[in-house]
Amino acid sequence: MNTARNFTGKMKKIILLFSFLFLGIMSGQAQDAQIILDKVDKNMVSKTEITESEMIIRGKRNVQTIGSKSYTEGNKKSFTEYLYPERERGTKMLKLEDRLWIYSPSTDRTIQLSGHMLRQSVMGSDLSYEDMMEDRKLKEIYDAIILGEETIDERKTWILELTASVENVSYHKRKIWVDQERFIPLKEELFAKSGQLLKKTTLSDISQIDGRWYPKKINFKDVLKSGNGTDFIIKKIQFNPAIPAYIFTKASLKK
């Protein structure tokens, strides 16, 4: 509660305003948090996106770099084609709402992953298919409050605490450290219902692309497992390009 004192001037005004307009400081804080989340969304989410990225998976014995190109439309549709290494080349993944298909060129088969399989890790990374499948906006499934402020790598951040507002989410609670100027999360922690920390995400290499701040490197780490986690590096990103509808059909998997 006393964290409100430390807010920057700009935010103080907003808080004051909202404190007056709404009932009490708690809901006011929640609203602030919502606004911050909205701003983050604005930065991070676009209507459509085409990204070329690399995933660096640190296995126990070796490091693998997997390149892919993804097309996304909102949170519900995405299509990913793996570009390298040779073994993965041509493997495609299509997500429509809560369904996921994987196509492998070597077998010319499309397999739908369901239930149990979605909980497996993707390519040996610290991410599960399910983690990738989450297609709802954070504010649709979480209630946020501002927990405090912290400086990370000389950047001031707000600490948001998100608590699930609906039941069917994987992580009951998240903590997000949001850059106070750029409205980019710098760090995220995912918690179990009991409060046990499960996963940690660190976002870095924040640069301006097409007028918005965007983290080009994301590190995912399953804190219960040993190792250095998985890096996700954006090579190229296009915001709001036109993506033809056929991309998001099963037929495009076999192309």
């Binding site: 998976i57 296995g59 070796n62 693998q64 997997i66 073994r87 993965e88 493997t91 994987i102 492998s104 070597s106 077998t107 010319d108 088969r109 397999i111 497996q120 890790s121 993707v122 390519m123 040996g124 990374s125």
Partner: peptide, 12 residues
């Protein structure tokens, strides 16, 4: 399934 390195693998 997954390969030794954790990648996805398919085989007919």
């Amino acid at each position: 399934g997954t390969t030794m390195n954790g990648s996805m693998t398919f085989q007919n």
